[in-house]
């Protein structure tokens, strides 16, 4: 596991110390998990171990909560998050093909991050852009009227940009 940033860990420990003194400290578990994801982009195992001690909740129970909510990422996420809209309109217009081509191109399943840590692939419900279905959203940018070829082109744009930023 990669070393967690110390300043972020300090912030989180302070937060856990604060809530652990409150009544029903265990009820702050979700707040702690939110704070963790806000700081690290995901919920690392080391944090769950520490939260277990701080809030006096067995790790198995924390794991149960963390896995229950799709919102919590359990692995580090990539620099860009790709959300594939699986809403009705997109679905009808071929979202599955878009998703399949992404899975193939990136070599990962839904919820997973590419080995180069550039992309995390996710499914989304309606993104509200049905008029240009099928759509994907990369970070906060929407791309519509997609097909397989167009999708790959977009991915390659991001790859190119990432390669260039490395050169600088």
């Amino acid at each position: 596991m990669t070393e967690l940033a110390q300043d972020k860990m300090t912030t989180l420990r302070e937060f856990m110390a604060e809530v652990s003194n409150k009544d029903y400290a265990e009820s702050y578990l979700i707040a702690v998990l939110h704070k963790t994801q806000e700081l690290f982009g995901y919920v690392p195992r080391q944090v769950m171990d520490e939260a277990s001690e701080a809030l006096q909740i067995p790790t198995a129970h924390i794991w149960g909560v963390a896995t229950f909510y799709h919102y919590f990422n359990l692995e580090p996420i990539g620099r860009h998050t790709i959300s594939v809209c699986m809403g009705t309109a997109c679905y009808v217009k071929g979202a599955t093909q878009v998703l399949d081509v992404l899975k193939k191109e990136l070599g990962v399943e839904v919820g997973k991050t590419t080995e180069d840590r550039l992309f995390t692939l996710q499914e989304a419900r309606c993104l509200g852009a049905c008029g240009i279905a099928p759509v994907i959203m990369i970070d906060d940018k929407i791309y519509g009227e997609l097909d397989a070829k167009k999708t790959v082109e977009i991915i390659n744009q991001y790859r190119k940009a990432a390669a260039e930023s490395r050169k600088v």
């Binding site: 195992r45 769950m48 067995p58 790790t59 198995a60 794991w63 896995t67 229950f68």
Partner: peptide, 26 residues
């Protein structure tokens, strides 16, 4: 495991059709 033995090794992780009884972190 959690009530009588208080070992708390097991949990129901994930949800719905994907729910699995497992130890922490699988």
């Amino acid at each position: 495991c959690s009530e009588i033995q208080q070992v708390h090794n097991l949990t129901q992780a994930h949800r719905g059709f994907q729910t699995v009884v497992m130890p922490a972190y699988d």
